[in-house]
């Protein structure tokens, strides 16, 4: 029983990280039809920015952690906005070009981070409470799981509020359906593009720092692994659907944890690929594909 609870919370925590990366990917694809392969680079740069911001500051561990969190969100957002303006915008209507520049940016970022900081994982220091566990239904759950879940939940709520209750959210939902009709109503859709990149980058940045919190380390290549999982999550959940991404992220995280534990390491990841293939065959639009919800 306690193992199941532990796997459940850990799987959901992993899913929460996937969701934070997937949310931006999904919105960016939904609105702009851009497959952003650089999204994992936002994650990585944010993880390192958070790490160095935290360690540069002679403060209490909690304050350091919090500063790192803000620095990561900021770094992810700024990097994403610059990517949109400098690399993506000149290539609208040239999807192959966009794929190439985002792949190039991802590879270049990986190489730069590796060159600058080495490819070995670095230990992050966390507040003591985060290194401790809390007993839930007999299972000793690392507290970091709760932190990750809580923040991802807040992001989900915030994104849904943004989409459902704000004017720009309305523009994004409409743009996901029919971009040119939005501009034919006199609305500058490109401003929404930048906004969506900023939001996606900040969420990926948050994931970068929370990934460090979750695993206790940072390394240059985790962003790539995250990106792949997040792409799978986006496709399973339905491109453009935030709720779908959240649901799919939970499913993927749980599937990986449970099968990797009860079957054998690697089986969980394999099962995710099977699930992906199944969804693509049976529900090509994803579980909740369609309008941005």
């Amino acid at each position: 029983m306690s193992t199941i609870v532990l796997l459940l919370v850990t799987g959901l925590g992993l899913g929460a990280l996937y969701f934070l990366v997937a949310a931006g990917l999904s919105l960016i694809w939904g609105l702009m039809r851009v497959l952003n392969f650089a999204h994992g680079a936002f994650f990585t740069v944010a993880a390192y920015a958070g790490f160095f911001a935290a360690t540069a500051l002679p403060a209490s561990p909690w304050l350091q952690w919090f500063v790192g969190l803000l620095a990561g969100i900021l770094a992810g957002g700024v990097f994403a906005v610059l990517t949109e303006i400098i690399l993506i915008r000149p290539l609208y209507r040239r999807p192959v070009g966009q794929v190439l520049v985002t792949v190039g940016l991802a590879l270049a970022t990986l190489a730069l981070v590796e060159g600058a900081f080495g490819s070995d994982p670095r230990q992050v220091t966390l507040p003591d409470w985060m290194n401790a566990t809390t007993t839930l239904l007999g299972a000793a759950i690392p507290n970091t799981r709760f932190v990750v879940l809580l923040l991802a939940g807040l992001v989900l709520a915030g994104l849904l509020f943004f989409l459902q209750r704000t004017r720009y959210g309305l523009i994004v939902r409409a743009g996901v359906e029919n971009r040119s009709m939005v501009s034919a109503l006199g609305i500058d859709v490109e401003r929404a593009f930048t906004l969506v990149f900023a939001i996606g980058g900040m969420a990926a940045g948050l994931a970068g720092v929370l990934g460090a919190t979750y695993y206790g380390t940072i390394d240059p290549s985790r962003g790539t692994t995250m990106l792949i999982s997040a792409f799978i999550v986006v496709v399973i959940g339905g491109l453009g659907s935030i709720t779908g991404s959240a649901l799919a992220a939970a499913i993927v995280g749980l599937l990986q944890q449970f099968l990797n534990f009860y079957a054998a390491a690697g089986v969980g990841d394999f099962a995710v690929v099977i699930l992906l293939a199944g969804v693509l065959l049976l529900r090509p639009g994803g579980l909740l594909g369609g309008p941005a919800t």
Partner: peptide, 18 residues
């Protein structure tokens, strides 16, 4: 437009608000 191009996933009120 010829094919109306309403935003099908949005409510009537949201279409107008846009």
């Amino acid at each position: 437009p010829e094919d109306r191009d309403v935003f099908g996933g949005l409510t009537v009120e949201e279409n107008l608000r846009l």
